[in-house]
């Protein structure tokens, strides 16, 4: 019984042909087969967001995707956001605001934040946009006017990315600094 298949993945701009087990997740394909360890494994169950990458432009938990199902996909990790050594504005904002401690959730947070702002910009709603009572912070329900997101919108939309070091109170202003540009 052969459980190995060949797939092609384009990762951070570079195409790779690789052999994976049909059970290999996209995350393990990146980390264990291609040696790209930018995306992290925190739970392997889609519960923490540490493995967030852009898959064909959208943020996904790469531990929940099987590599075999994504032959030919375009993947961007946090390392790929900083091609040629130039940090992405979101990465610079995270450093300036000290929006991490151990850094293990950080690549996922940053990829997620970049994609999240694009989603908000495109008018995708969140529970806060839909007028759920917030109770925390600046209140919700007004929806994103183009180019701005409230702190509560950021909190809600970033809640798929856990940070056990609990840098949340620095992550929100770091993202807002980029959002306001």
């Amino acid at each position: 019984m052969s459980t190995e298949v060949e797939v092609t993945l384009r990762v951070d701009g570079t195409p790779h042909r690789l052999t994976v087990d049909v059970r290999t997740t996209l995350l393990d394909a990146l980390r264990e087969r291609l040696g790209n360890t930018s995306a992290k494994k925190g739970c392997d169950h889609g519960q923490c967001g540490a493995c967030t990458v852009l898959l064909n432009g959208r943020r996904v938990n790469s531990c929940l995707a099987l590599a075999v199902a994504h032959d030919g996909a375009e993947i961007v990790t946090a390392a790929g956001l900083a091609l040629d050594g130039e940090l992405h504005p979101m990465q610079r904002a995270f450093i300036r605001h000290d929006a991490f401690q151990c850094g293990y959730c950080t690549p996922g947070q940053i990829v997620s934040a970049v994609a999240m702002l694009a989603e908000a910009e495109a008018g995708w709603p969140s529970a806060v946009t839909m007028g759920e009572p917030a109770g925390v912070g600046s209140g919700g329900g007004d929806g994103p006017t183009v180019g701005t997101v409230t702190d509560d919108e950021v909190r809600e939309r970033m809640s798929g990315n856990l940070c056990r070091c609990a840098a949340y109170a620095n992550i929100v202003p770091a993202i807002q600094e980029v959002a306001r540009r």
């Binding site: 990790t77 390392a79 940090l87 995270f94 450093i95 991490f100 690549p107």
Partner: peptide
Amino acid sequence: DRFDGAEKVRGL
């Protein structure tokens, strides 16, 4: 700023 910040934000 943390000395390892630039590595950590890229996952390196």
